[in-house]
Design a protein around this nucleic acid. Structure first.
Length: 747
DNA sequence: CTGACTAAGTTTTTT
DNA sequence: ACTTAGTCAG
C-alpha cells in the first residue's frame, strides 16, 4: 500500500483509492492525471485484490497504452497479478471484440480494417455509383459527414435527412456501408459503432463482457466521442464502476468527433459520481501557468480552474517578433545553442511546436544550416507511405480476397499490363456475375470460363491470379515476414522501387524495415499482424531517447512535457488557423454558423493552451511579420491569444497595438467623406453604381485580418464591389479594402 | 497502357 | 510552393 500511494498528494490518493462507484477526475495539465490512472490500476490489483482480468483501461494512443502497462508492471511486476489486463485504445479493444464475437455479427472473423485512404477510395466509388457531382460532393466531405454520423451512433438507415443535401448524404452513407460490407471491411468508426450495436442487440454478449470488465478506466476522457462514451456506459452497466480522467480545456480533437461535453454528461448521468479535482501543477512554474490561464480563461462554457504550482519562480514567457519564418528558425536555433553552451540544458530538453506540419520546413532548414540534429515527430507516418501501403495491400488481399480496395490498389503495381480499361471491364463483368472482382479473378483461371476481356488483358489477369492463389495456398504455412519476402520476390516489387533515385532507395529500406518488423510476429497468424498494423499509426521509434530537440505539431504535443518549449507562428491565420476564423470574417452568416465559428476558435485556444502548458521552465512564443504561405508572401497580425497573456507573465517584444484609441477615431473621423445614402442624392446623381447601399460608412471602426483595427474614411460601391477607404493606426496609413475583408467592430 | 502535362487544392490526427 | 489528381498524346 505504502508503495503505491507514495509520492501522491491528498487528492491524487483520494482518486486512486476511491470506491467502486463512478469517479470523475477533473484535472489540469501537469497534475498527474495519467499517473493517477496508472496507480489506480496497481492499487486495484494489489490492495483490492481485483483480478487484472477484470480491469479494462482505455488510453488515447497505443503508445500511451504500452507505457502505462510498463509502469503498472514496474509497480507490481513480481507479483504477476497482471494476467489478462486489457489496456489499449477503444479501437483496438473493439476490433478484438468484433473478431471474437464474429458469429453475432454480419462480418466474418477475417474482416479488414479500412483506414482513411481506403475509405476515400470506397467513397469515390460511391460518388460514381450514385452519379453525384464530385464538385459539390467530394468523397472527402461526404466521408466526414458519414463519419460524424457514425461517431454519434446514427446508422445509415436511421439517418434523417432534413434538407435536400442531406438526402444525398443519406444515400451516400447507405451505399458506402454496402460497399464496405462487400469488401468485408469496417472503417475505424464502424469498430466503435458495431461494438455498441453488438452489445445493444445481444444482451447475453453484453452481460458476458460486463462480468469480465468490472472496472473500466478511461484516460483523456475529454477526447472521447458519443460512441465511445456509450460503449463505456454499456460496459459499466449497473455496477457503474467507471473511472474517467480528463481535462476539458485540453480537448483538441473535436474536429474528428470528440465531444468534451462528455465530461458534463458523465456528471449528469452519474449524479452520485465522486468528482475529484486536481489543480496543483507539478510541471511548470507559476509564470507559465499564469500565461496559460490568461489564454484559456477567454473561453466560455467552461469551469474556471485555478492552476497553481509550488515550484520556484522561473523566467517569464518570452515573446519574439521575427521578420520571417527563417528568422524564426534562426532565433530558435540560436537560443538552443546559447542555452546548451551555458550548460543549462541538453539538446533533448527542447521542443518546437507549431500549428501545421508545413511550418516544420523552415525550422528544419534552420537546424540543418546550423548542423544541429533534430527529431521530427509525426509528419508522414510510416504506415501511410505508399510503398508500405502497397505491400500491406498484397497481404490484406491474400488474407481477405473480398478486399476490393486493396485489389484495385495493387492489381497493376508494379505495372503488369492491367490498365484502367481492363479493370473496368473486369469489375463490370464481376458485378454481372454477382461476384467480387477478386472472386471473378479466380474464375479466370478456368480456361472454359467466358469473359468479355481481350486475350492479352486476360493473360495479364491470369498471371496475377496465379500469384494470388499461390500466396493464399501458403499463407498459413509461412510466417508473416516470409510471406512478405515471397510477395516481394514474386512481384518484383523491390526492382520496381529501385529507380536509381535516393527516394527509391529509402522506399526500399522502408519495405525491408516492414519485413523486419513482421519478424516479431513469427509464429503468430497473419491476421494478428494485419490487425495490429491497421490499428497502429506509427512504428516504435527506438530513437525516442535521442538527445535532440523535437519538432512537432501542437496536436502531437499532447501529454508530453519539455523543460523548454518554443511555439512558432503564433499569428492570426495560423493559430488560430485561418479556417477556424473564416466564419467571423464573413458577413451575413447565420447564427448557427457564427456559433460554429466561435467553437472553432475556442478549440484553437485550447490548442494554444496545451502548447503553453507543455513547458516546464522556459516558454518562447514567436510570430513573424512576414511569412510565405501557399507560394506568396503574406503578413499576419500577432495572434489574438498573445494579447490574452497578462503583461506580468511575459517579456520580450512589445505587441503591436491592435485597437483604435478614442482620440484617433475622432481625428480620423474628421477626415471622413460620407458616402451619401441614396435618399440624399438627386435623380441626376443617382447612377446605378452609386445608388447601391454601402455596408460601411465614414467613422465606422473596422477590423482587418492583416492591418488590424482602423477607421473608415469613406465607402463606395463600384463594379459590384464595395470599396472602403480605411485609415489604420497600426500601420499609420490609409488603404482601400474590399468590404468582404472588413469586420465591423462594436464600439 | 504509359508517361508527361495541367489544374486544383491546400488544418490539426489517431484509430 | 508543392503535391496530387485528372487529362491527353504517343
Amino acid at each position: 500500500m505504502a508503495d503505491i500511494l507514495k509520492g501522491l498528494n491528498e487528492q491524487q490518493r483520494a482518486a486512486v483509492t476511491a470506491g467502486d462507484g463512478p469517479v470523475l477526475v477533473l484535472a489540469g495539465p501537469g497534475s498527474g492525471k495519467t499517473r493517477v490512472l496508472t496507480h489506480r490500476i496497481a492499487y486495484l490489483a494489489q490492495e483490492r485484490n481485483v483480478r487484472a482480468w477484470h480491469i479494462m483501461a482505455v488510453t488515447f494512443t497505443n503508445k500511451a497504452a504500452r507505457e502505462m502497462e510498463n509502469r503498472v508492471l514496474g509497480m507490481l511486476g513480481e507479483s504477476g497479478k497482471l494476467d489478462g489486463l486489457s489496456i489499449g485504445t477503444f479501437h483496438a479493444i473493439c476490433a478484438r471484440i468484433l473478431r471474437v464475437e464474429a458469429d453475432y455479427t454480419t462480418f466474418t472473423r477475417d474482416y479488414a480494417i479500412f483506414d482513411t485512404e481506403d475509405q476515400l477510395a470506397v467513397m469515390s466509388h460511391v460518388v460514381g455509383d450514385l452519379n453525384l457531382d464530385p464538385k459539390t460532393n467530394t468523397p472527402r466531405s461526404l466521408l466526414s459527414k458519414v463519419s460524424a454520423a457514425k461517431n454519434e451512433l446514427i446508422a445509415a438507415r436511421e439517418y434523417q435527412p432534413s434538407e435536400y443535401r442531406d438526402e444525398k448524404i443519406r444515400r451516400a452513407y447507405q451505399r458506402y456501408d454496402e460497399l464496405l460490407r462487400e469488401n468485408n471491411a469496417r472503417d475505424f468508426d464502424d469498430l466503435l459503432m458495431h461494438t455498441v450495436q453488438l452489445f445493444q442487440q445481444n444482451a447475453d454478449v453484453l452481460e458476458r463482457y460486463q462480468r469480465r470488465y468490472q472496472y473500466v478506466l478511461v484516460d483523456e476522457f475529454q477526447d472521447t466521442n458519443i460512441a465511445q462514451y456509450t460503449l463505456v456506459r454499456l460496459l459499466a452497466g449497473e455496477r457503474r464502476c467507471l473511472f474517467a480522467v480528463g481535462d476539458p480545456d485540453q480537448s483538441i480533437y473535436a474536429f474528428r468527433g470528440a465531444d468534451y461535453r462528455n465530461v458534463k454528461r458523465f456528471a449528469e448521468d452519474h449524479p452520485d459520481a465522486q468528482v475529484i479535482m486536481l489543480e496543483e501543477n507539478y510541471r511548470s512554474h507559476q509564470a507559465i501557468l499564469n500565461a496559460a490561464m490568461g489564454v484559456i480563461d477567454q473561453n466560455t462554457d467552461r469551469t474556471k480552474k485555478n492552476l497553481f504550482s509550488q515550484r520556484k519562480k522561473g523566467p517569464l514567457a518570452t515573446i519574439y517578433e521575427a521578420y520571417s519564418e527563417d528568422d524564426e528558425a534562426h532565433y530558435v536555433v540560436e537560443t538552443i545553442t546559447d542555452l546548451v553552451s551555458k550548460g543549462e540544458y541538453k539538446p533533448g530538453d527542447f521542443a518546437i511546436m507549431y500549428r501545421t506540419n508545413a511550418q516544420s520546413r523552415a525550422l528544419e532548414d534552420g537546424f540543418r544550416r546550423a548542423n544541429m540534429p533534430y527529431r521530427l515527430v509525426g509528419a508522414t507516418s510510416f504506415y501511410s507511405r505508399k510503398e508500405i501501403k502497397d505491400v500491406m495491400a498484397y497481404l490484406r488481399l491474400t488474407h481477405n480476397p473480398s478486399d476490393n480496395v486493396s485489389f484495385e490498389r495493387i492489381v497493376n503495381v508494379p505495372t503488369r499490363g492491367i490498365g484502367q480499361k481492363t479493370i473496368e471491364t473486369m469489375i463490370t463483368w464481376a458485378r454481372d456475375q454477382g461476384m467480387s472482382p477478386p472472386q471473378a479473378l479466380f474464375m479466370l483461371l478456368d480456361d472454359k470460363i467466358d469473359s468479355p476481356l481481350s486475350s492479352r488483358a486476360r493473360a495479364a489477369l491470369v498471371g496475377f491470379a496465379k500469384m494470388l492463389q499461390e500466396w493464399r495456398r501458403v499463407r498459413d504455412d509461412l510466417m508473416p515476414a516470409e510471406l512478405i519476402s515471397k510477395v516481394l520476390k514474386d512481384t518484383g516489387y523491390i526492382s520496381y522501387l529501385d529507380d536509381g533515385t535516393e527516394q527509391g532507395q529509402s522506399r526500399i529500406e522502408n519495405v525491408l524495415e516492414l519485413r523486419g518488423y513482421a519478424e516479431r510476429y513469427n509464429g503468430l497468424p497473419l491476421v494478428t499482424f494485419l490487425e495490429e498494423i491497421s490499428l497502429v499509426s506509427d512504428v516504435d521509434t527506438p530513437e525516442d531517447d535521442l538527445n535532440r530537440p523535437s519538432l512537432m505539431t501542437l496536436h502531437s504535443a499532447k501529454g508530453l512535457e519539455f523543460p523548454v518549449v518554443f511555439i512558432t507562428g503564433v499569428e492570426e491565420n495560423i493559430l488560430p488557423h485561418s479556417r477556424s476564423i473564416a466564419p467571423e470574417r464573413r458577413p451575413g452568416i447565420t447564427e448557427d454558423e457564427r456559433q460554429e465559428g466561435i467553437r472553432a476558435v475556442e478549440e484553437e485556444r485550447r490548442l494554444m493552451y496545451v502548447g503553453i502548458t507543455r513547458a516546464e521552465q522556459r516558454l518562447y512564443l514567436l510570430y513573424a511579420t512576414m511569412r510565405s504561405l501557399y507560394g506568396d508572401s503574406r503578413s499576419n497580425l500577432p495572434s489574438r491569444f498573445l494579447y490574452d497573456i497578462p503583461d506580468a507573465a511575459r517579456n520580450g517584444s512589445d505587441l503591436p497595438r491592435r485597437g483604435v484609441t478614442e482620440g484617433e477615431r475622432r481625428s480620423y473621423q474628421a477626415m471622413t467623406t460620407w458616402a451619401a445614402p441614396a435618399s440624399y442624392l438627386t435623380r441626376s446623381e443617382e447612377t446605378p453604381k452609386s445608388s447601391a447601399k454601402t455596408r460601411f460608412r465614414g467613422g465606422d471602426v473596422v477590423f482587418h485580418a492583416k492591418y488590424g483595427e482602423g477607421v473608415v474614411i469613406s465607402a463606395k460601391v463600384a463594379g459590384g464591389l464595395e470599396q472602403v477607404d480605411v485609415m489604420f493606426p497600426g500601420i499609420g496609413g490609409q488603404k482601400t479594402i474590399i468590404a468582404d475583408f472588413l469586420k465591423k467592430v462594436e464600439s
